[in-house]
């Protein structure tokens, strides 16, 4: 029995969300008194042995270039086979785009009980109960897994990465890899932007900004903070911003350390996507905006005056530290 942690990589580099699942999986393994092992697929350029510092003793590596694109069908077969070979009874993924493609297939293949979107370590005192977000972040469910094999995918940004000491041994795993039936013809990576679900700080704008031409003040603030940018649904629908920036119940759900909402009233559907943020700042000229009820800090004021000042003050703070 062991815990097998899927290490997601893109273009040879290990994703930040993988460090979270490594920490989470290693902690779960020590809670159960079993070994924590990682698995990485495809061509990797990062030093994966160094990932031992997140608590894994061994990392299995299947270095076949057929695995350089994530193909759910091919990946599931390889990971399930590796789980069987290594005697893993718990398999951990990030609930990121890769996890959403692959984890459920792995679970079905192994007939494992699946909790997708976990947000805390399982309670193993009596059975195996995993807390997950439901109703798009408006609530949590405690889900009992009743099957011997268990698959968990962990929401990004919901478990703090802890780096300790240690080096993992690398085990080159030889597993036959099928040729994917899905033929990838083009890949368009968004470059230079911080992925929304991984960002520590998110700056988000709503209709209060009045038009796409006014986004400059928001982008300046985001740049100063090293933040990702997001928007409310009406802004995405009006094509003021690309729709992948839409956060909310029917958009992306995020849980950054800091969420700054500018000119967003805070409809219940929007709150559902952001209410797991650790600190929420709301800037709105309407003191009755419902968002203030969900905020930690707020300024009732004109965004066009407040936001440039905020950028300037943050610049000062950074200069002083």
């Amino acid at each position: 029995m062991s815990v097998l942690i899927f290490i997601d990589q893109a273009d040879g580099h290990v994703k930040k969300s993988s460090l979270e699942v490594l920490t989470y999986g290693a902690k779960l393994a020590s809670q159960l008194g079993v070994a924590a092992e990682g698995i990485v697929l495809g061509t990797v350029s990062d030093d994966i042995a160094a990932l031992g510092k997140y608590g894994v003793s061994k990392i299995h590596h299947v270095s076949n270039n057929l695995l350089d694109h994530v193909d759910a069908q091919v990946y599931a077969k390889v990971i399930a086979e590796a789980a069987n070979a290594s005697g893993a009874s718990i398999i951990i993924f990030s609930h990121n785009q890769t996890g959403k493609a692959v984890a459920a297939r792995v679970a079905a293949r192994l007939k494992a009980g699946l909790v997708a979107g976990a947000c805390a370590l399982p309670d193993t005192t009596n059975g195996f109960v995993v807390k997950k977000t439901v109703f798009s972040g408006k609530a949590f469910a405690n889900v009992s897994i009743n099957a011997p094999i268990k698959v968990i995918s962990l929401n990004p940004n919901s478990y703090t990465t802890i780096a300790g000491e240690g080096t993992a041994t690398i085990n080159a795993l030889h597993i036959a890899v099928d040729t994917p039936k899905v033929k990838v013809t083009a890949v368009n990576k968004v470059t230079g932007e911080i992925p929304l679900t991984e960002a520590d700080i998110v700056v988000s704008g709503g209709r209060g900004l009045k038009g796409p031409e006014n986004w400059g003040i928001l982008l300046d603030l985001a740049k100063e903070l090293g933040a990702a940018t997001a928007c409310s649904r009406p802004v995405g629908d009006a094509h003021w911003r690309p729709h992948h920036e839409h956060v909310g119940q029917t958009g992306v759900q995020i849980a950054p350390n800091l969420y700054i909402a500018i000119g967003i009233s805070g409809a219940i559907q929007h709150l559902a996507g952001v209410n797991r943020s650790k600190v929420i700042v709301v800037i709105n000229k309407d003191p009755e905006a419902p968002f203030f009820k969900a905020a930690d800090y707020g300024i009732v004021g004109d965004a066009f005056e407040v936001v440039p000042q905020l950028t300037a003050e943050i610049k000062k703070l950074k200069a002083a530290n």
Partner: peptide, 23 residues
């Protein structure tokens, strides 16, 4: 066979209340 079941639900803890700062 169902492999999981929901034991209970929880609501997120309420926010302590917003701290307003003058514009």
């Amino acid at each position: 066979e169902a492999l999981t079941n929901i034991v209970s639900f929880e609501l997120p803890p309420a926010k302590a209340g917003v701290k307003l700062v003058a514009p």
